[in-house]
Design a protein around this nucleic acid. Structure first.
Lengths: 147, 147
DNA sequence: CTTGACCCTGTAGTCACTACAGGGTGTGCA
DNA sequence: TGCACACCCTGTAGTGACTACAGGGTCAAG
């Protein structure tokens, strides 16, 4: 009978902070583990795999709510596969929308950064002037003629 | 003497929620406005411009802390312009790093989505199998041979 | 025995909002 | 005039995904 892992060992094995592990347990994503005589949590392979699953989903920016849904699908192998597809498709759409907005944002920051010349103080700062001009409702280098 | 705007009017003029406006005031980003006899906030052009400035920074994903720093620079025109450049550069770097990770994430989700075949139930779902395989430490289609 | 690293539970904080409770004000309509 | 509704106010709490801390217990080494 192999002794289970304490929480820091599980954390080291998965790269997850002990507080985050306890958080996932409280959030219902990770089942409560057995306890040693001293009250310490004792984790086995099942938890190791579950935690890895969760972290994998998080790495894909899948919310904990959606991660929970995927875990439900695992627990019910007869569930409709289309629902899983939809979940991943929705996530993909979210990521792609966010990507588009980040790309626009990058361009805007590059344009703003381009306002910086050889000045030495805030009074003459192209960046600040640009931000203030935008606040005046003028077209700004960041966003163009959108106003 | 022109009557000031009530909070909803300022909100309508800037597209900012009244609760967010009050939040910014509490957070110290927006100065506390004058009050009407009935205790209602009364905003003028100064607030309109300040709020537009803040929202512009937020649109650039600049944190409230950094927005506060930019406002400080505005209040101190003799401050060193280089510090502003650094702030915007740091923001640009953050956005670019996030952009890179979102792009990788998109690829990973597309790869995962590509696991979906003609199955009808969760038991045979390529997506779930992929996520579970990743949890087993096997190379996954999302991340390749990283493990 | 002491110390320091670990453990535990419960609570609070982070960030940028967003929502709600409970009460006040103003206006239009019956 | 009274009511209903839309607005206002302050203070508090909640969101999501963590992260930190308080106060106390356990363990092992020196």
């Amino acid at each position: 009978m192999k002794t289970g892992m304490r929480i820091s060992e599980l954390g080291a094995a998965t790269g997850v902070d002990t507080e985050t592990i306890r958080y996932y347990e409280k959030a219902g994503l990770l089942p409560a583990p057995a306890r040693s005589a001293n009250g310490y949590r004792s984790y086995g392979d099942v938890h190791l795999e579950r935690l890895a699953f969760i972290r994998h989903c998080r790495a894909l920016d899948i919310s904990l709510a959606d991660t929970r849904r995927l875990l439900d699908f695992l627990a019910h192998p007869e569930a409709d596969c289309g629902d899983i597809d939809q979940l991943i498709d929705a996530q993909l759409a979210r990521v792609q929308a966010r990507l588009a907005s980040m790309q626009a944002l990058e361009q805007q920051l590059l344009a703003l950064r381009g306002q910086c010349g050889e000045h030495r103080c805030a009074r003459d700062c192209g960046i600040l002037q640009e931000l203030v001009a935008a606040a005046h409702g003028e077209a700004c280098a960041c966003h163009g003629s959108r106003t």
